[in-house]
Amino acid sequence: MPEQVAMTSSTALSPETLPFPFDIRFKSSKPAVREALAGVRQALAPLGLDMEELQTVELVLAEALNNIVEHAYTEQEPEQDDLITLRGDHRGDGLHFRIIDRGEAMPDGKPPLGHAQPISPVIEDLPEGGFGWFLIRDLAKDVCYRRIGAENLLDLRLAIALDLQG
């Protein structure tokens, strides 16, 4: 289903430069999120990240994007224009991502605090969810959410692929 995900890169025509910034635009669904993450791995390939760094990128983005699919848009009744845009850039202080959607705003206009889930000694009381924002806040820096007009903007940075010269 490669047509589900549209990818553009402003520097794709220049072989000397890395493909940043890149934009990935896709329809809100969990399979499309999976495909978009494959696109991110491909875009980051020239940076030569190690396995743990790549996992960090993929995990943080998976949590943020799946939250949009589940909560900002309506998963059961998707609209034709339920689109998500993921923008990635590489700067001196790491990888910067902006995620844009046109779904519902975050409750109270802010993202969850993402506290660690309490681990109950009673198996039936163990949490099955609520880990997503904890992982985002644990692994990402400079997390900033804004509602602008009909759009949700989520910016975050991962201190990965730091350019110590720049």
Partner: peptide
């Protein structure tokens, strides 16, 4: 690769099997 939804599904399976 596992994300929080996958983790939750494993926890749900453990709860389903218990006690």
């Amino acid at each position: 690769f596992i994300d929080s939804s996958g983790l939750g599904a494993i926890v749900a399976t453990m709860k389903f099997l218990a006690p």
